[in-house]
Protein backbone atom coordinates (compact mmCIF):
# COMPACT_ATOMS: atom_id res chain seq x y z
CA UNK A 1 0.00 0.00 0.00
CA UNK A 2 1.40 3.33 -1.08
CA UNK A 3 1.81 5.90 1.71
CA UNK A 4 1.94 9.60 0.87
CA UNK A 5 1.69 12.83 2.80
CA UNK A 6 0.18 16.25 2.24
CA UNK A 7 0.28 19.39 4.34
CA UNK A 8 -3.00 20.47 5.92
CA UNK A 9 -3.10 23.62 3.79
CA UNK A 10 -2.44 21.71 0.60
CA UNK A 11 -5.15 19.24 1.51
CA UNK A 12 -7.68 22.04 1.92
CA UNK A 13 -6.64 23.53 -1.45
CA UNK A 14 -6.99 20.07 -2.97
CA UNK A 15 -10.53 19.77 -1.61
CA UNK A 16 -11.45 23.23 -2.88
CA UNK A 17 -10.25 22.19 -6.31
CA UNK A 18 -12.35 19.03 -6.10
CA UNK A 19 -15.38 21.08 -5.05
CA UNK A 20 -14.85 23.47 -7.99
CA UNK A 21 -14.40 20.65 -10.50
CA UNK A 22 -17.83 19.26 -9.53
CA UNK A 23 -16.92 15.77 -10.74
CA UNK A 24 -18.49 14.55 -7.54
CA UNK A 25 -20.23 16.01 -4.51
CA UNK A 26 -17.66 16.57 -1.78
CA UNK A 27 -19.01 15.75 1.66
CA UNK A 28 -17.24 16.34 4.92
CA UNK A 29 -17.69 16.85 8.63
CA UNK A 30 -18.94 20.29 9.66
CA UNK A 31 -19.91 21.86 12.93
CA UNK A 32 -23.60 22.20 13.82
CA UNK A 33 -24.13 23.99 17.11
CA UNK A 34 -21.87 22.29 19.60
CA UNK A 35 -21.70 19.04 17.68
CA UNK A 36 -20.80 17.65 14.26
CA UNK A 37 -22.58 16.37 11.18
CA UNK A 38 -21.68 15.13 7.71
CA UNK A 39 -22.71 17.69 5.12
CA UNK A 40 -21.98 18.65 1.53
CA UNK A 41 -19.11 21.15 1.38
CA UNK A 42 -19.27 24.40 -0.51
CA UNK A 43 -15.67 25.10 0.39
CA UNK A 44 -13.06 23.61 2.66
CA UNK A 45 -13.52 26.47 5.20
CA UNK A 46 -16.33 24.67 6.96
CA UNK A 47 -14.55 21.32 7.15
CA UNK A 48 -14.06 20.28 10.77
CA UNK A 49 -11.94 17.16 10.73
CA UNK A 50 -11.00 17.50 14.37
CA UNK A 51 -14.29 16.03 15.62
CA UNK A 52 -15.41 13.54 18.25
CA UNK A 53 -18.42 11.94 16.55
CA UNK A 54 -21.13 12.97 14.08
CA UNK A 55 -24.82 12.95 15.04
CA UNK A 56 -25.70 10.57 12.21
CA UNK A 57 -23.27 8.19 10.55
CA UNK A 58 -22.47 8.47 6.82
CA UNK A 59 -25.03 5.74 6.05
CA UNK A 60 -27.45 8.60 5.32
CA UNK A 61 -25.75 9.01 1.94
CA UNK A 62 -26.10 5.37 0.89
CA UNK A 63 -29.45 4.64 2.44
CA UNK A 64 -31.06 8.08 2.72
CA UNK A 65 -33.66 8.46 5.51
CA UNK A 66 -36.29 8.92 2.82
CA UNK A 67 -35.28 7.30 -0.44
CA UNK A 68 -37.14 7.15 -3.71
CA UNK A 69 -37.44 3.62 -5.13
CA UNK A 70 -40.21 3.81 -7.73
CA UNK A 71 -42.31 6.36 -9.57
CA UNK A 72 -45.70 5.64 -11.07
CA UNK A 73 -49.15 6.86 -11.99
CA UNK A 74 -51.46 5.89 -9.12
CA UNK A 75 -53.63 2.92 -10.01
CA UNK A 76 -51.58 2.01 -13.09
CA UNK A 77 -49.08 -0.81 -12.42
CA UNK A 78 -47.76 -0.58 -15.97
CA UNK A 79 -46.33 2.82 -15.10
CA UNK A 80 -43.92 1.57 -12.39
CA UNK A 81 -40.39 2.94 -13.00
CA UNK A 82 -37.45 2.17 -10.77
CA UNK A 83 -35.44 5.28 -9.98
CA UNK A 84 -32.25 5.95 -8.10
CA UNK A 85 -30.03 8.92 -7.46
CA UNK A 86 -26.45 7.72 -7.60
CA UNK A 87 -24.59 10.96 -8.24
CA UNK A 88 -20.87 10.47 -7.53
CA UNK A 89 -19.72 11.64 -4.11
CA UNK A 90 -16.59 11.71 -2.01
CA UNK A 91 -16.98 11.59 1.75
CA UNK A 92 -14.04 13.00 3.64
CA UNK A 93 -13.08 12.27 7.23
CA UNK A 94 -14.91 9.04 8.03
CA UNK A 95 -13.62 7.50 11.23
CA UNK A 96 -12.50 3.88 11.03
CA UNK A 97 -15.48 2.58 13.03
CA UNK A 98 -17.92 4.17 10.57
CA UNK A 99 -15.98 2.55 7.74
CA UNK A 100 -16.35 -0.78 9.54
CA UNK A 101 -20.08 -0.12 9.63
CA UNK A 102 -20.17 0.62 5.90
CA UNK A 103 -18.47 -2.73 5.35
CA UNK A 104 -21.32 -4.37 7.28
CA UNK A 105 -23.97 -2.44 5.32
CA UNK A 106 -22.30 -3.36 2.01
CA UNK A 107 -22.55 -7.01 2.86
CA UNK A 108 -26.17 -6.75 3.94
CA UNK A 109 -27.19 -5.02 0.71
CA UNK A 110 -24.99 -7.01 -1.70
CA UNK A 111 -25.35 -10.56 -0.42
CA UNK A 112 -28.40 -12.63 -1.31
CA UNK A 113 -30.69 -10.38 -3.33
CA UNK A 114 -28.47 -7.53 -4.46
CA UNK A 115 -29.96 -4.13 -3.69
CA UNK A 116 -28.80 -1.91 -6.56
CA UNK A 117 -30.41 1.18 -5.07
CA UNK A 118 -27.82 1.01 -2.30
CA UNK A 119 -24.99 -0.60 -4.23
CA UNK A 120 -24.98 1.92 -7.08
CA UNK A 121 -24.65 4.74 -4.57
CA UNK A 122 -21.75 2.90 -2.98
CA UNK A 123 -20.11 2.10 -6.32
CA UNK A 124 -20.13 5.79 -7.17
CA UNK A 125 -18.65 6.92 -3.87
CA UNK A 126 -15.15 7.55 -2.63
CA UNK A 127 -14.52 7.00 1.05
CA UNK A 128 -11.73 9.01 2.64
CA UNK A 129 -11.09 7.65 6.11
CA UNK A 130 -9.50 9.40 9.04
CA UNK A 131 -8.13 8.15 12.33
CA UNK A 132 -9.94 10.01 15.15
CA UNK A 133 -8.11 13.00 16.53
CA UNK A 134 -10.52 13.76 19.31
CA UNK A 135 -11.68 11.84 22.35
CA UNK A 136 -15.36 10.87 22.67
CA UNK A 137 -16.45 9.69 26.06
CA UNK A 138 -18.86 7.00 24.81
CA UNK A 139 -16.61 5.52 22.14
CA UNK A 140 -15.40 1.91 22.55
CA UNK A 141 -14.50 1.18 18.94
CA UNK A 142 -11.03 -0.14 19.73
CA UNK A 143 -12.51 -3.05 21.65
CA UNK A 144 -14.84 -4.16 18.86
CA UNK A 145 -13.47 -3.15 15.41
CA UNK A 146 -10.84 -5.30 13.70
CA UNK A 147 -9.62 -4.79 10.13
CA UNK A 148 -12.89 -3.88 8.38
CA UNK A 149 -12.07 -0.23 7.61
CA UNK A 150 -9.47 -1.16 5.00
CA UNK A 151 -11.98 -3.37 3.18
CA UNK A 152 -14.02 -0.34 2.13
CA UNK A 153 -11.83 2.78 2.46
CA UNK A 154 -10.31 4.26 -0.67
CA UNK A 155 -7.93 6.45 1.30
CA UNK A 156 -7.02 6.51 5.00
CA UNK A 157 -5.66 9.65 6.56
CA UNK A 158 -3.63 10.03 9.72
CA UNK A 159 -3.20 13.48 11.22
CA UNK A 160 0.46 14.29 11.97
CA UNK A 161 2.03 17.65 12.86
CA UNK A 162 0.55 19.97 10.25
CA UNK A 163 0.36 17.09 7.76
CA UNK A 164 -1.91 14.26 6.81
CA UNK A 165 -0.30 10.95 6.07
CA UNK A 166 -2.43 9.33 3.37
CA UNK A 167 -2.60 5.60 2.86
CA UNK A 168 -3.73 4.84 -0.68
CA UNK A 169 -5.95 1.82 -0.19
CA UNK A 170 -7.66 1.46 -3.58
CA UNK A 171 -7.20 2.34 -7.25
CA UNK A 172 -10.24 4.59 -6.93
CA UNK A 173 -8.46 6.42 -4.12
CA UNK A 174 -5.32 6.74 -6.21
CA UNK A 175 -7.28 8.33 -9.07
CA UNK A 176 -9.06 10.67 -6.70
CA UNK A 177 -5.87 12.28 -5.36
CA UNK A 178 -4.34 12.96 -8.77
CA UNK A 179 -3.72 16.66 -9.08
CA UNK A 180 -3.24 17.27 -5.36
CA UNK A 181 0.11 18.01 -3.79
CA UNK A 182 0.51 14.55 -2.30
CA UNK A 183 4.19 13.87 -1.80
CA UNK A 184 6.45 11.15 -0.53
CA UNK A 185 5.89 10.25 3.11
CA UNK A 186 8.72 11.11 5.49
CA UNK A 187 7.25 9.80 8.74
CA UNK A 188 8.32 6.44 10.10
CA UNK A 189 5.79 3.63 10.37
CA UNK A 190 6.19 3.81 14.12
CA UNK A 191 5.30 7.51 14.14
CA UNK A 192 2.28 6.85 11.99
CA UNK A 193 1.19 3.98 14.16
CA UNK A 194 1.53 6.12 17.28
CA UNK A 195 -0.59 8.83 15.69
CA UNK A 196 -3.26 6.29 14.76
CA UNK A 197 -3.46 5.19 18.37
CA UNK A 198 -3.08 8.59 19.98
CA UNK A 199 -6.71 9.00 20.97
CA UNK A 200 -7.70 6.43 23.56
CA UNK A 201 -11.12 5.02 24.30
CA UNK A 202 -12.24 5.08 27.92
CA UNK A 203 -14.96 2.59 27.26
CA UNK A 204 -14.48 -1.01 26.39
CA UNK A 205 -16.72 -4.05 26.00
CA UNK A 206 -15.96 -6.03 29.16
CA UNK A 207 -15.63 -9.38 27.42
CA UNK A 208 -13.89 -10.37 24.21
CA UNK A 209 -16.16 -9.78 21.21
CA UNK A 210 -15.51 -13.27 19.88
CA UNK A 211 -17.24 -14.67 22.96
CA UNK A 212 -20.27 -12.39 22.89
CA UNK A 213 -22.54 -14.35 20.50
CA UNK A 214 -22.34 -17.37 22.75
CA UNK A 215 -22.55 -15.22 25.87
CA UNK A 216 -25.77 -13.59 24.69
CA UNK A 217 -27.20 -16.96 23.64
CA UNK A 218 -26.75 -18.19 27.20
CA UNK A 219 -28.32 -15.08 28.67
CA UNK A 220 -31.61 -14.99 26.81
CA UNK A 221 -33.43 -15.16 30.12
CA UNK A 222 -31.24 -12.62 31.94
CA UNK A 223 -33.20 -9.94 33.84
CA UNK A 224 -31.26 -7.21 31.99
CA UNK A 225 -33.79 -7.29 29.14
CA UNK A 226 -36.73 -6.60 31.37
CA UNK A 227 -34.90 -4.14 33.62
CA UNK A 228 -33.62 -2.08 30.70
CA UNK A 229 -36.85 -2.59 28.74
CA UNK A 230 -38.80 -0.99 31.59
CA UNK A 231 -36.73 2.16 31.19
CA UNK A 232 -36.95 2.25 27.41
CA UNK A 233 -39.07 4.91 25.70
CA UNK A 234 -39.19 2.88 22.48
CA UNK A 235 -38.16 6.15 20.88
CA UNK A 236 -35.91 4.48 18.33
CA UNK A 237 -33.09 7.00 18.71
CA UNK A 238 -30.53 4.23 19.27
CA UNK A 239 -31.32 2.44 16.02
CA UNK A 240 -31.68 5.59 14.01
CA UNK A 241 -28.20 6.84 14.87
CA UNK A 242 -26.64 3.38 14.61
CA UNK A 243 -24.25 3.03 11.66
CA UNK A 244 -25.04 -0.70 11.24
CA UNK A 245 -28.84 -0.44 11.43
CA UNK A 246 -30.45 -0.55 8.02
CA UNK A 247 -34.05 -1.69 8.60
CA UNK A 248 -36.60 0.20 6.57
CA UNK A 249 -40.27 0.60 5.86
CA UNK A 250 -41.74 1.07 2.39
CA UNK A 251 -44.50 3.60 1.75
CA UNK A 252 -46.50 4.98 -1.14
CA UNK A 253 -46.91 8.73 -1.45
CA UNK A 254 -48.94 10.56 -4.05
CA UNK A 255 -49.07 14.14 -5.21
CA UNK A 256 -52.15 16.20 -4.46
CA UNK A 257 -53.35 15.83 -8.06
CA UNK A 258 -53.33 12.04 -7.51
CA UNK A 259 -51.55 11.71 -10.85
CA UNK A 260 -47.97 11.21 -9.71
CA UNK A 261 -46.90 8.70 -7.10
CA UNK A 262 -43.75 7.50 -5.44
CA UNK A 263 -42.79 4.37 -3.55
CA UNK A 264 -40.24 5.37 -0.97
CA UNK A 265 -38.29 3.64 1.73
CA UNK A 266 -37.80 5.31 5.06
CA UNK A 267 -35.67 4.41 8.05
CA UNK A 268 -37.43 2.16 10.49
CA UNK A 269 -36.20 0.40 13.59
CA UNK A 270 -36.83 -2.69 15.65
CA UNK A 271 -37.06 -0.63 18.85
CA UNK A 272 -40.26 1.05 17.69
CA UNK A 273 -43.45 -0.47 19.01
CA UNK A 274 -45.11 -1.30 15.68
CA UNK A 275 -42.05 -2.73 13.94
CA UNK A 276 -43.14 -6.40 14.02
CA UNK A 277 -46.89 -5.91 13.77
CA UNK A 278 -48.56 -8.02 11.06
CA UNK A 279 -51.58 -7.05 8.98
CA UNK A 280 -53.86 -8.93 11.37
CA UNK A 281 -52.59 -6.80 14.27
CA UNK A 282 -50.45 -9.49 15.92
CA UNK A 283 -47.25 -7.97 17.35
CA UNK A 284 -44.41 -10.49 17.32
CA UNK A 285 -42.30 -8.31 19.62
CA UNK A 286 -44.88 -6.70 21.86
CA UNK A 287 -42.80 -6.14 25.00
CA UNK A 288 -40.16 -3.44 25.29
CA UNK A 289 -37.78 -5.99 26.78
CA UNK A 290 -38.17 -8.25 23.73
CA UNK A 291 -37.36 -5.38 21.43
CA UNK A 292 -34.41 -4.34 23.56
CA UNK A 293 -33.03 -7.87 23.50
CA UNK A 294 -33.55 -8.18 19.76
CA UNK A 295 -31.49 -5.08 19.10
CA UNK A 296 -28.59 -6.24 21.26
CA UNK A 297 -28.85 -9.76 19.80
CA UNK A 298 -28.72 -8.36 16.30
CA UNK A 299 -25.49 -6.51 17.02
CA UNK A 300 -23.91 -9.08 19.30
CA UNK A 301 -25.13 -12.42 17.98
CA UNK A 302 -27.06 -12.46 14.70
CA UNK A 303 -24.80 -10.21 12.61
CA UNK A 304 -21.55 -11.74 13.97
CA UNK A 305 -22.84 -15.23 13.21
CA UNK A 306 -23.63 -14.18 9.65
CA UNK A 307 -20.71 -11.90 8.81
CA UNK A 308 -18.05 -13.00 11.31
CA UNK A 309 -17.60 -9.48 12.58
CA UNK A 310 -19.18 -7.93 15.64
CA UNK A 311 -22.33 -6.08 14.52
CA UNK A 312 -21.59 -3.03 16.66
CA UNK A 313 -18.64 -0.80 15.79
CA UNK A 314 -18.39 0.99 19.13
CA UNK A 315 -19.14 4.50 17.93
CA UNK A 316 -21.06 5.27 21.14
CA UNK A 317 -23.84 7.13 19.33
CA UNK A 318 -26.63 5.01 20.83
CA UNK A 319 -25.47 5.63 24.36
CA UNK A 320 -25.03 9.32 23.64
CA UNK A 321 -28.49 9.71 22.12
CA UNK A 322 -30.42 7.62 24.65
CA UNK A 323 -32.49 9.86 26.92
CA UNK A 324 -33.00 6.98 29.35
CA UNK A 325 -29.28 6.21 29.36
CA UNK A 326 -29.64 2.48 28.69
CA UNK A 327 -28.82 1.88 25.05
CA UNK A 328 -25.06 1.39 25.02
CA UNK A 329 -23.83 -2.19 24.55
CA UNK A 330 -21.05 -1.57 27.08
CA UNK A 331 -23.64 -0.62 29.66
CA UNK A 332 -25.80 -3.65 28.86
CA UNK A 333 -22.98 -6.18 29.07
CA UNK A 334 -21.57 -4.55 32.18
CA UNK A 335 -24.96 -4.94 33.83
CA UNK A 336 -25.04 -8.59 32.84
CA UNK A 337 -21.56 -9.11 34.22
CA UNK A 338 -22.46 -7.38 37.47
CA UNK A 339 -25.63 -9.43 37.84
CA UNK A 340 -24.63 -12.94 36.89
CA UNK A 341 -27.48 -15.40 36.98
CA UNK A 342 -26.83 -18.69 38.75
CA UNK A 343 -23.84 -19.62 36.60
CA UNK A 344 -25.65 -18.70 33.39
CA UNK A 345 -23.03 -16.27 32.23
CA UNK A 346 -19.91 -17.65 30.60
Amino acid sequence: MEILKISENDFMSFLDKKIDEKAEKVIGVVKKGSHFVFNELESSDKLALDYDVTMLPPKKYFQPPKELLLKYKPGNPESYRAVNNCDPMAIVGIHYYDLAAIYMMDRAFSEGERDEHYMKKRDNSILVGLYPTKYFKYRFAKSVVRDQAYKVADLMMVKMNGDYVVEVVSEKGKDFIKGGNFIENTYTLQEIDDAKNKVKDDQKIPISVELIPDYLGKNHGHPVWEVFGEKCFSCGSCVLVCPTCYCFDVRDEVELNLEEGKRIRIWDGCMLEDFAVCADGHNFRKEKGQRFRHRIYRKGKHLPEKYHYFGCVGCGRCQYSCAADIAGPVKVIKYMEDNKQGGQNV
Binding site: K32, H35, V37, T54, M55, L56, P65, F233, S234, C235, G236, S237, L240, V241, W267, L272, E273, D274, S321, A323
Partner: peptide
Protein backbone atom coordinates in the same frame (compact mmCIF):
# COMPACT_ATOMS: atom_id res chain seq x y z
CA UNK B 1 -43.25 6.94 17.27
CA UNK B 2 -41.84 9.74 19.38
CA UNK B 3 -40.55 13.13 18.31
CA UNK B 4 -37.00 11.96 19.19
CA UNK B 5 -36.92 10.16 15.84
CA UNK B 6 -37.53 13.35 13.91
CA UNK B 7 -35.02 15.24 16.04
CA UNK B 8 -32.36 12.64 15.32
CA UNK B 9 -33.17 12.76 11.61
CA UNK B 10 -32.57 16.49 11.69
CA UNK B 11 -29.36 15.91 13.65
Amino acid sequence: YPVCIECKLRE
